[in-house]
């Protein structure tokens, strides 16, 4: 393995950690524009993190070690995910640690830790949020698995780096099933990242919140780490989407420094477009009642299965 690969690896991780709050800030800004509100500055997320890190932690009396450790674990899993997802280059030494399916497992680890931490204090909201979060999780997993199944049929691999390599070297690969998979993926992305229509990141209304209910007891540096991990999560999901559906521009194996710089620029442009699109979807849809969430996720699942069937029926070339 070449030494330069480790440079790319660490560069990419640091980039993800640094850019993630900006991406969340960009989505919030776009939302504000579309809703005719005064937009917060792009750096709002960074300021919030700084403020939270400097505050004293107000910890519930009966909080256990699990409650205090969970934010760090959460942050750690999201950083690991960022190390695996090829956002700029595919020449990543750590990428072989997990294929797309193992990545689902990694996100599940984060989810379980967050849910357990939410139950630790024993307040009504924490447990309620944990239960709802786990419910959304088990609804989303079959759908996202079908998306990756479809990708496997197309590219003959479940490794994200392999998919990007295959896609970029065979630009002619286009299959109608990809469209279905993309729609299903976006629906899962919205559900998994506590966005409208499943959850609303801006609400503190008791009856509807999921993510906010889970983090209600957190404060200061713990909350900062959780918020940072959340923005890393949506950043990671966006990067998975980019790698799966619009990988052009990502520097594939053995790329030069110039290609990597171009890849970096394309990534920023793509993320900007993705963020705007997410804000648009969020602005034009309404929050669903919690028990409509299964229907929404079932729809995502069915769309993904439909894509799979389209692929199988068309009898397309299974490995490009």
């Amino acid at each position: 393995m070449r030494g330069i690969a480790f440079v790319w690896q660490f560069g990419e991780v640091l980039l993800a950690i640094a850019l993630a709050p900006l991406f969340s800030g960009w989505i919030a800004k776009c939302r504000a524009w579309m809703q005719n509100r005064t937009a917060p500055p792009l750096t709002q997320q960074y300021r919030m993190l700084r403020k939270l890190f400097l505050k004293d932690v107000a910890l519930a009396e009966n909080a256990s070690w699990l409650f205090r450790a969970a934010p760090y674990v959460l942050f750690g899993t999201m950083v690991l995910a960022a190390a695996i997802i090829p956002s700029v280059v595919t020449d990543l030494p750590f990428a072989s640690a997990a294929d797309a399916i193992a990545l689902i497992g990694l996100f599940a680890t984060a989810r379980v830790f967050q849910a357990l931490a939410a139950m630790d204090i024993g307040t009504a909201f924490g447990t309620l949020g944990a239960r709802r979060e786990m419910m959304v999780g088990f609804l989303a997993e079959p759908a996202i698995l079908m998306v990756f199944f479809n990708a496997f049929l197309l590219f003959g691999t479940t490794a994200l780096t392999g998919m990007v390599d295959n896609y970029a070297t065979h630009p002619s690969v286009f299959d109608p099933s990809v469209v279905f998979a993309a729609i299903a993926f976006v629906m899962v992305l919205l559900a998994e990242n506590a966005r409208i229509p499943i959850d609303n990141p801006a609400t503190h209304l008791e009856l509807t919140m999921i993510h906010e209910a889970m983090v209600l007891e957190y404060s200061a540096r713990h909350l900062a780490l959780i918020e940072w991990a959340s923005s890393l999560k949506i950043f990671n999901y966006a990067c998975i989407g980019i790698a799966l559906f619009i990988p052009w521009g990502i520097a594939i194996h053995g790329a030069t420094v110039g290609a990597v710089l171009i890849a970096l620029l394309t990534l920023i442009v793509k993320l900007a477009l993705c963020g705007a699109a997410l804000a648009l979807i969020e602005s034009i849809s309404a929050k669903l009642r919690i028990f409509r969430a299964p229907e929404f996720m079932a729809m995502a699942f069915l769309i993904a299965v439909l894509g799979l069937l389209v692929h199988l029926l068309l009898g397309a070339n299974t490995s490009a």
Binding site: Y72, G76, S96, A102, T157, T158
Partner: peptide, 27 residues
């Protein structure tokens, strides 16, 4: 085949533990 799918528990454990330790110290 490694190109198709691979999983490494070592990297999972090591990276998560490292990031947790570094974050903790940095904070």
């Amino acid at each position: 085949a490694p190109e198709q799918a691979s999983y490494s528990g070592w990297i999972f454990l090591a990276v998560i533990l490292c990031v947790v330790a570094v974050t903790f110290l940095a904070v």
